[in-house]
Amino acid sequence: MAFKLLAFAALIAVARAGVIGAPLAYAAAPAVAKVAVDTDFDPNPQYSYSYDIQDALTGDSKGQSETRNGDVVQGSYSLVEPDGTRRTVEYTADPVNGFNAVVHREPAVAKAVVAAPAIAKVAAPVAYAAPVRAYAAAPAYLG
Rank of each mutant, 00 (worst) to 15 (best):
T88A: 09
A27T: 15
S76I: 04
E66M: 09
G59K: 02
D52M: 06
A136Y: 11
V113A: 14
Y91W: 02
P82Y: 02
R133L: 11
S76K: 07
K4D: 14
P43I: 14
Y77A: 05
L6W: 00
F99V: 08
N100S: 03
K4M: 11
R105H: 01
Q54L: 08
P30Q: 00
V14M: 08
S65L: 05
Y128P: 02
K4H: 15
G70D: 03
A134V: 07
F99C: 10
V37Q: 13
E90H: 10
V73Q: 07
A28R: 00
P30Y: 05
S78C: 00
H104D: 15
E81I: 00
S61W: 02
A115I: 02
A130Y: 01
Y51I: 06
N100M: 13
P43F: 05
G63R: 00
Y51Q: 05
K34H: 13
D94P: 10
Y47V: 09
A56V: 15
A129Y: 00
T39C: 08
A116I: 06
A129S: 01
V89I: 13
V14Q: 08
G18Q: 02
Y77Q: 10
R105C: 02
P82G: 12
N97G: 02
D83I: 10
T92A: 13
Y141Q: 14
D40A: 15
V73A: 08
P107T: 06
K111S: 15
P30N: 07
V73N: 01
A129I: 10
A123T: 10
A134L: 12
S61C: 04
A29M: 00
E90K: 13
R105S: 10
A13I: 12
S78R: 05
K34N: 03
D38L: 03
K4W: 06
A127P: 04
S76Q: 14
A112W: 00
M1Y: 00
P117E: 03
P95Q: 03
A123E: 14
D94L: 09
V89Y: 01
T67W: 00
Y77L: 14
F41Q: 07
A116Q: 03
A124L: 08
V73S: 05
P45Q: 03
A93Q: 12
A123C: 08
L6D: 08
D83C: 13
R16N: 15
Q74M: 11
A13S: 11
K34W: 11
M1P: 10
P107D: 12
A10P: 08
A138C: 03
P95K: 05
E106T: 09
D42K: 14
V126Y: 13
P43T: 06
L142V: 14
